[in-house]
C-alpha cells in the first residue's frame, strides 16, 4: 500500500518537481506513471522508494511515514521494494550471479538458499545459462533482464521501475511487459514510470499522468 497525501517536492534552488500530489496505490495494483520528460515521474518513484524525502505532505508505505522515518529504519523499508533503474545500476566487476545475489547477502541469506533463489530469478528472466558471465558481455536487453532478476530475487512486495523500456527495441519492451505482468499476477504491486504508449496499450494498467509536477487528472481513488 502506497499513499501520497498533498505531497510537494522542491529541490534546492527552488525547482518544484512535484506539486500537491495525492494518490493511493493498493497492494497488487499495476500502475503506470506517465507524462512528458521532466514531469516528475522519476521524483515520484524516488519518493516511493524512500530515496528522497518529500518537502511537505506525507508519503506512507505500508502505513509508515517515509518523511519522518529514522534513517536507520530506511534500509528495512527499502527491502520491501524491487527497484529497476533506467541505467540498470549493475556492478560490472561482478558476474551475473554475484549481481543478483547482492540483495540476498544484504539481508543475510544462507549461501545455499541464496544460490537457489538466484537461479530461480535468473531462470525467470531467461539468463540462467549466463550466470558466470560479466554484465559487459550482455546485450542491452539482457542487462535489463539482469536488473529485473536482481530486483525480484528477494521476492519484494512491490516492484518499482523507472523507464525500464527506455533503451530497448519494441520486441524486448514487449518481453519486459510480459514479465512485469506475470509478477503482477502473483500479487506483486507493480509501478512503472514510462512514456512507452505501446506497453501501456498492451498491459492496460491503471494510469497516473503527471503534467509539470502535478496530477493531470484526478486519479480514480483519492488518497486514503
Amino acid at each position: 500500500m502506497i499513499s501520497f497525501s498533498r505531497v510537494y517536492k522542491r529541490y534546492p534552488g527552488g525547482f518544484e518537481a512535484l506539486r500537491d500530489i495525492s494518490l493511493a496505490i493498493a497492494d497488487g495494483d499495476m500502475v503506470f506513471i506517465t507524462g512528458h520528460s521532466g514531469a516528475g515521474k522519476s521524483t515520484l518513484l524516488k519518493l516511493m522508494a524512500a530515496i528522497e524525502r518529500p518537502t511537505s505532505g506525507s508519503v506512507l508505505i505500508n502505513g509508515q511515514n517515509v518523511g519522518t522515518l529514522r534513517p536507520r529504519a530506511i534500509p528495512f523499508l527499502r527491502r520491501n521494494f524491487g527497484l529497476i533503474f533506467q541505467d540498470h545500476k549493475l556492478l560490472f566487476d561482478r558476474t551475473v550471479f554475484e549481481n543478483v545475489v547482492l540483495p540476498l547477502s544484504i539481508v543475510g541469506y544462507e549461501r545455499r538458499d541464496a544460490a537457489r533463489r538466484v537461479r530461480a530469478a535468473l531462470d525467470k528472466v531467461g539468463l540462467l545459462a549466463k550466470e558466470k558471465a560479466y554484465p559487459v558481455t550482455l546485450s542491452g536487453g539482457e542487462q535489463q533482464r539482469l536488473a529485473i532478476a536482481r530486483a525480484i530475487v528477494h521476492r519484494p512486495a512491490m516492484l518499482l521501475a523507472d523507464e525500464p523500456t527506455g533503451n530497448l527495441d519494441a520486441a524486448y519492451a514487449g518481453e519486459l511487459g510480459e514479465l512485469c505482468k506475470s509478477f503482477n499476477q502473483v500479487g506483486v504491486t507493480v509501478v512503472i514510470a514510462t512514456h512507452d504508449e505501446h506497453l501501456a496499450a498492451r498491459l492496460k494498467p491503471r494510469l497516473i499522468t503527471l503534467r509539470n509536477g502535478a496530477l493531470a487528472e484526478a486519479p480514480v481513488e483519492a488518497a486514503a
Partner: peptide
Amino acid sequence: REEIEIAKLIGATNPF
C-alpha cells in the same frame, strides 16, 4: 562508490 550506492538503494544498512 557505485557498489556502495547500489547496496544502499537495495536496502543495505550502514553497518553492513
